[in-house]
Write a protein that binds this DNA or RNA. Structure first.
Lengths: 244, 244
DNA sequence: CGAAGTATTGACTTGTTTCAATGTTAGTGG
DNA sequence: CCACTAACATTGAAACAAGTCAATACTTCG
């Protein structure tokens, strides 16, 4: 187990703390779970449509996305997951995957078997609550995506997406002086927003021109979140942060 | 309690049966819950953004939609709920509503307090599983919507939506000789699909021309589901029906 | 029956996509 | 460390699909 691996229990308990009241004993239970770690390269699909996973996962570093493909091979990205997220809790209760899980850029992912998770849940009902809540927040982000992609123009759409990523990174302490890490190409961003590369590029240009977006060293800095929220019609209620 | 009201426990237990193994005793527990019924007129918002509901609800008849509005007052419909659906289970775990609940046409809705639901859950862990699963299927429908609205052209988008409604009605035994009940105007359908009335109208015309859509007496009949699925790139996996 | 809402259609406009070329950055191996 | 290559970003011009506008039928329901 590398140094990085030891962060998983910490990442996870921080995440769960934000979702439900977890005791120290319960945290220990979590840390003791048989985690398994894997490093994946860019654009690596590690769970596919139709699969029936026997483990759930946590994002340790990098971005993981949920995706689904048209017959023509176009990918729609359904959600973007940052470190600390549990993008595959649903497979604990729904057998067949209706979407895939893929990396963007390099990525470290932690896995733990459904069996181990279920055992932990049996002893700790607050864990069930926390996990359920995680999937509910997930659903909330889907709603945000439907709203964003269905009603907002390209510039507002991008702004909305950046606001969401900003606050989510903020919540797990991943916003530094350079902003938050962002290694998605404009092409991939387009797959999230339902836009072409060209439109994403022009939207980004527009935001930069207004001094609302700065990109350096694969990081995104948002000088004026409030203004960005206004443009993106972004409402933090969606994130259900600190509601508990 | 009217004749119709007595259907609620039946509707609910049929729904939960499809989600988890519910025993007869557990069904009785559900039926004994203090349900309260309300009839609403068309376009009635009974839960609003920012509300903190103290009860969850079940759709008894008619359609209930989740919605969210742009600053300009445009509504994006996030999901459509048919009889048997529990569109507000999330409020059991997430306090503040990030969207509204509204009727389409006339609608009967059953309510039961969170407290009563929580008590029932404490005695019956399979109920928690069933409820959790319902919210997970919900999330799956959101994913379908993101895919549909983001990647499909108007005709395919409408086809996809109709397939979803068909199979969902089928699953609760609501597809009759006339097809399934459908009282949404093309305007409202547009709010689901992120299209204008005009586009919806033309898409409907195209499907009718291909003999894939018949509308009579506020019902929709789908003569060839297979063909409709093909056009809408619809994959039933999304619905997670009969997975248990 | 009449009013209001809904469906349907055509003509026109606009914004996004497509196509395509060029500039820029990041990563690899000599 | 530099050169080379592939991936990514940026831009302009043209095509086109969906939106807007607007007028006319058709329903539904009080």
């Amino acid at each position: 187990m590398s140094l990085l691996d030891s962060q998983i229990p910490e990442l996870l308990s921080r995440k769960l703390q934000s979702l439900a009241a977890i005791s120290a004993a319960e945290e220990d239970t979590l840390a003791a779970l048989p985690w398994r770690y894997e490093d994946f390269g860019p654009r690596h699909q590690f769970v596919g449509v139709g699969d029936t996973p026997t483990a759930s996962c946590i994002v340790v570093s990098g971005f993981v996305v949920r995706g689904r493909y048209t017959e023509a091979g176009e990918r729609q990205i359904l959600s973007v997951h940052i470190p600390g997220d549990l993008p595959d809790l649903q497979s604990l209760n729904l057998r067949r995957m209706d979407h895939s899980l893929e990396t963007i850029g390099r990525c470290r992912v932690g896995f733990v078997s459904h069996n181990a998770l279920r055992r932990a849940c049996e002893h700790t009902s607050s864990l069930v609550t926390a996990f359920w809540r995680e999937t509910l927040v997930d659903a909330s982000l889907y709603r945000a995506a439907i709203f964003r992609n269905g009603q907002l123009e390209p510039v507002a759409r991008l702004a909305h997406f950046l606001c969401e990523l900003y606050f989510r990174h903020k919540a797990v302490g991943l916003v530094g002086p350079k902003g938050f890490p962002f290694q998605m190409s404009q092409e991939v961003t387009g797959e999230v927003l339902g836009l072409t590369v060209v439109s994403v590029n022009r939207a980004a240009k527009a935001l930069r021109a207004q001094g609302l977006l700065e990109t350096t060293d694969r990081h995104i800095h948002v000088p004026d979140v409030t203004a960005l929220c206004r443009i993106g019609q972004f409402d933090r209620t969606f994130l259900h942060q600190g509601e508990r």
